[in-house]
Design a protein around this nucleic acid. Structure first.
Lengths: 213, 213
DNA sequence: TTCACAATGTTAATTTATTAACAATTTCTT
DNA sequence: AAGAAATTGTTAATAAATTAACATTGTGAA
């Protein structure tokens, strides 16, 4: 697809493309070759129109009676979400959440990989975790530059978040995913995404509450 | 505020209210008594207008030259997000992520609490974790009913997600927060929120990629 | 062959969310 | 006391996201 258009894909479409791919990979692994928009929709709990619209936006065309070719669609989503060289990320904070992330991500994607993990507690740096090399936080800048890491995932305690962010920015990171409840500040050229588990839980609680009133 | 209006608060406003409260609690703990919309905005990386609009929607009014009374605002957000009796949640899957959630949530809120954790591995059920009682998954239905748990947080492996969901629904749960990459199906009366870490990371990667092209 | 069906692709309409604009008002300064 | 500055509250405008509507087109059945 046209690179110019690619930049203007809506945020929500990007998120869904990632999810489509995940579902498609699963179907592909099971030997399925084609899929209809309403099948994807069912899996993702959204409407078939939305699926077709997203796919239209990325410029792919299915066949009328067989739906979308799964392999082709996976490849195209890859061309949009991935880069040829691959993107490297690191986890900062080897606690439960950091470990969950590394463990969970292991071997899932080829073009996006977690190549290092950092912690300030020397006890947590003694050995590799799930094939991911671990380092002391003081080595962050050196390792980030040496390995060409462009994304940092923050899973430290909230108090440590600002300091860690600063270190990451200083090391030249391009994007940050902050799992701390403390919002952090980054310069404009760094893309920031924040997620807080408590907010999600409180949201669920709110809708549970209002539904039952 | 009027209960009728409360139901119609936008989803995004609900999320932000949760975040405002968190920030406000912090300010309050530091002895601050009032806060301006632009101060809240700065913390949350949003605009002051949005803050004022959200606060308008919940029917609160600040004072013109001092801003918002932090205690009052915290109390009001509490009346919207919380219930008098409190809401109980449980974690299913005592792996790294489940532990992270429990540990992280501990003591943060009074009206929303994680009162149980389940796992199918007996080795993980031997003792309490962070003051949260742990049980074998077979006890789920009994415990959920006994304790009046209304929210389930799924942190098991993707393969186990559908089965766990079914158990939770069968036990009468009202809301589910699914951290598995596998979308699950629930009946209409159960509120479902799903979050996938890989999608977030791929989104960051995409914007890092497009920014640098 | 022809017709009905089931699917895609796309434009238009609608809804939801954000941002802009600005009146109103209190406090501070002079 | 008068005027400037700063801040809220709210309506109007804009932008983003979703949904509806429908034309189009292969395919299979009668």
């Amino acid at each position: 697809m046209d690179k110019n258009k690619m930049k203007h894909l809506p945020h929500k479409t990007i998120e869904r493309l990632s999810q489509y791919r995940r579902a498609l990979l699963l179907c592909h692994a099971q030997g399925q070759t084609h899929i209809f928009s309403h099948e994807i929709a069912k899996i993702q709990h959204i409407t078939a129109v939305q699926v077709r619209r997203d796919i239209m936006l990325i410029g792919y065309t299915g066949t009328l009676r067989k739906g979308y070719n799964i392999e082709e669609l996976i490849a195209l989503i890859g061309r949009i979400l991935d880069t040829d060289e691959g993107i490297k990320a690191c986890v900062v904070g080897i606690g439960n959440l950091g470990r969950a992330f590394i463990n969970y991500f292991k071997g899932k994607r080829t073009k996006l990989s977690i190549v290092a993990a950092f912690d300030n507690n020397p006890n947590k740096v003694v050995k590799n975790f799930c094939n991911t090399e671990t380092f002391h936080i003081d080595e962050l800048e050196r390792i980030v530059k040496q390995k060409g890491i462009s994304i940092g995932i923050i899973t430290v305690s909230p108090e440590a978040a600002p300091e860690v962010t600063e270190k990451l920015v200083k090391a030249g990171i391009k994007g940050i995913l902050n799992y701390t409840p403390k919002p952090v500040n980054v310069p404009a050229h760094v893309y920031l995404e924040e997620y807080d588990m408590i907010t999600s839980l409180e949201k669920v609680a709110f809708f549970v509450k209002t539904h039952s009133e």
